[in-house]
């Protein structure tokens, strides 16, 4: 048994690579992610669309659709009984993996419109989850489902139990999704851009709800988002991703007050701040995210980086090293000798 897991760590991802083998070539959606999720803490995964954050999250539950698959790395999950399970190598379809899905680690998705079965009643879908993982009778499961619906703030839960997804608004559907995800009291909730498809007021309500439930159920939350405002509001830890790698991780104050990686710095600078009057345009990150099939050699960010050092950044990929108050993968803070 490995003993390197950090105390308090619930999930420890190291060197995770999830690649998509398409007809046009291999898309390295996740290419060497190192990340730790701690118990009872909220970690936000921040990054532009297409940076691999969703795929990384889906890799944890092993629900990446073909032609994608995990090619390397470990996802060490520490179960409640102290066992450590490597999810990256768990057999697809095994009872062990299915036990963890839904019961230990639950997930909610971006599109509440399409993430619920379209022609099954909401209540039935929740009851189904409860019955899958817990030894309760159907009637008990129904009562619990109604209680959950009530808990996530759905009015008239007893009636909504009988409702179909298309009868609910987007916000209500996302609440129902949350109720379903939390129905087995998971230890980790992965929320993949849960508010992107919702309008602004609903977004705030859903985020508040997740934060509230996190305290109540004493669970860890992994929130995936591209919205810096969301991060500032709910995060305790932050990991910034760029082209399939974590480029900087640390607690929320370190990332916001003292960002180290040029990408993080550029991100922070691109946000308008109330009270700060600046003339001219907001600074934007130059260039565009490279095509996934045309990854730059070395540090993937070097093509857009103002501090890129020719001969250094294009030869090898930087590792995460401590810098400032966080850990950063950038040659400004480490020697180019570490990684090939």
């Amino acid at each position: 048994m490995r003993t390197e897991a950090v105390p308090g760590a619930l999930l420890e991802i190291s060197g995770l690579k999830t690649h998509f083998f398409t007809e046009d070539g291999v898309v390295k959606a996740v290419d060497g992610v190192d990340l730790t999720v701690y118990q009872n803490r909220t970690i936000c995964i921040l990054g532009e669309s297409g940076c691999g954050k969703s795929i990384m999250a889906r890799s944890i539950l092993r629900i990446v659709d073909a032609p994608g698959r995990i090619t390397d790395g470990r996802i060490l999950y520490r179960a409640a009984d102290g066992r450590e399970i490597d999810l990256a190598t768990a057999r697809q379809g095994s009872a062990q993996l299915r036990q963890i899905r839904g019961q230990d680690i639950a997930m909610i998705f971006q599109e509440p419109m399409t993430s619920l079965g379209p022609i099954q009643k909401i209540g039935k879908q929740i009851v189904e989850t409860i019955l899958l993982h817990r030894k309760v009778s159907k009637a008990e499961a129904k009562e619990e489902a109604i209680e959950m619906l009530d808990r996530v703030g759905i009015p008239d839960p007893r009636q909504r139990f009988e409702a179909y997804p298309f009868e609910l608004s987007g916000g209500m559907r996302q609440r129902a999704m949350i109720a379903m995800a939390l129905s087995c009291q998971p230890r980790l909730l992965i929320a993949d851009e849960p508010t992107t498809a919702l309008d602004v007021t609903t977004q705030a309500q859903i985020l508040d709800l997740i934060a509230e439930l996190k305290e109540e159920f004493a669970m860890a939350v992994m929130l995936i988002t591209h919205d810096l405002g969301v991060v500032a509001e709910v995060a305790e830890d932050v990991a910034v991703m760029y082209m399939g790698r974590v480029v900087e991780e640390g607690d929320v104050y370190a990332i916001f007050e003292n960002p180290q990686h040029p990408y993080t710095r550029a991100l922070m600078a691109s946000v308008p701040r109330i009270g700060v009057t600046k003339s001219g345009r907001l600074p934007a990150i130059k260039g565009m995210v490279p095509h996934p099939l045309a990854r730059p050699s070395g540090c993937p960010f070097r093509t857009r980086c103002d501090s890129a050092m020719p001969g250094v950044c294009d030869t090898s990929v930087p590792d995460l090293v401590p810098a400032g108050d966080s850990r950063t993968a950038c040659f400004l803070f480490s020697d180019a000798t570490g990684n090939g």
Partner: peptide, 16 residues
């Protein structure tokens, strides 16, 4: 077969 709700069901821990 590749709709999000199928992924949801899979993430719930149902067998294929």
């Amino acid at each position: 077969l590749y709709r999000p709700y199928v992924v949801t069901a899979r993430a719930k821990g149902m067998t294929e």
